[in-house]
Write a protein that binds this DNA or RNA. Sequence first.
DNA 1: GCAAAAGTGTTAGGAGTACACCCATGC
DNA 2: GCATGGGTGTACTCCTAACACTTTTGC
Lengths: 221, 221
Amino acid sequence: MEVNNPRYQHQGIHVIASIFTIDKGKLKILLIKRKNNPFQGKWALTGGALYNDEGLEDGLNREIYEKTGLKNIEVKLANVFGRKDRSPVMRMVAITYIGMVDAKKVEVAKDTLKTSNAKWFSIEEIPSLAYDHNEIITDAIKILKEEILKTDFLKVFFPNGFTLPELQKVYESVLEKQLDRRNFRKKILNTNMIVPTTEEKSFEGKKKAKVYKFKRKEEEV
Amino acid sequence: MEVNNPRYQHQGIHVIASIFTIDKGKLKILLIKRKNNPFQGKWALTGGALYNDEGLEDGLNREIYEKTGLKNIEVKLANVFGRKDRSPVMRMVAITYIGMVDAKKVEVAKDTLKTSNAKWFSIEEIPSLAYDHNEIITDAIKILKEEILKTDFLKVFFPNGFTLPELQKVYESVLEKQLDRRNFRKKILNTNMIVPTTEEKSFEGKKKAKVYKFKRKEEEV
DNA sequence: GCAAAAGTGTTAGGAGTACACCCATGC
DNA sequence: GCATGGGTGTACTCCTAACACTTTTGC
């Protein structure tokens, strides 16, 4: 590879996260209003161009921190978007990720260096976005729904454990449909992702419910 | 994004295909002996650096053609490899794909512009490769086995249709294990990927068998 | 005592797996 | 006629999905 061949120049990597949360039972996604060109003033997903001295997820976490103040978000690879005209500036290939955060416990830093605003949007109310970000979100939501029962994404909402009815509410919000209580218990207990604790607590209801927690990685068998 | 910020410079995209075939009942992968630095003389996967004026799969097909003479290989996205030191030349992010070709019907062009050789390797005999290509292959084989029953990759072997025993042999080669004849029939007929024809032919055996073919995309319901 | 939520078990259908016999053909 | 391979059905298990009643608690 001849580094100075002009055909190889002016290329870069976008690392982009679709960061979701559940707010009042609704699945929402974090968008950033762009301060700079291109697409100045448009809403966009969290992310940006990778530096050439950092790993993909490191770069993504840097971008997330710069634009939102959030640190150490756990993300999962989603897809690759590489249409050659997807950026008007130069040839950019986007590596997309999915992340989940607890909006209630997070101070999303406003008006950081590169952005004028960050806001949670209900997924039915997503505006026209910069780049191909609308397409990226549609894809991310699809993957999120497919993977949500196989991953422990939702543990960010329950640092201190959860009752099954609580957890079920969050699943229902992500999947945007109701689940049967008995079948949900069977399925989630079969995944081997969660373990019961000795605690009990009451959530919305009157009756106490048993508290579970997500296994840490090394506990999984 | 400031295009001239040095942190954004000297980045590029590798598009890389793990191209498989079945040869004499064994799963094999196509490797190319590198003519140029870095890793001159080492074996490597098919692929290379993307030009800044082409789509990802277009670039991959160009690379495949330049290095092997194969045209219009159908590929499927596999994964992303982005360790920051994965290339000694500059910051390269690899987008990896999986493809399947019929080795018997293909003249792999030898000694093309950038390579001194191309050769099929049985997957148990893969040498130490350039870059992180050993890792990429391990990952690709895993994905191939997971996806093989959900995709029509294998249609390249059967442009004129196939009998179920023939198809089963190929599946067994990919999965590297024997399958039960009755269960294989049930499973493959349930996938809705194949349809019977009115033809019959005999394959290895004496008795004639019904010929099936893969549905074209638009036929799938 | 009643409303609200937690907890629990059964049944039926579909998919996966294991397994054995008869049929058609070439020699 | 026999060896080779093609074609088929059944039983078991597991997962999914549908569905109703009892228990606990706060008020």
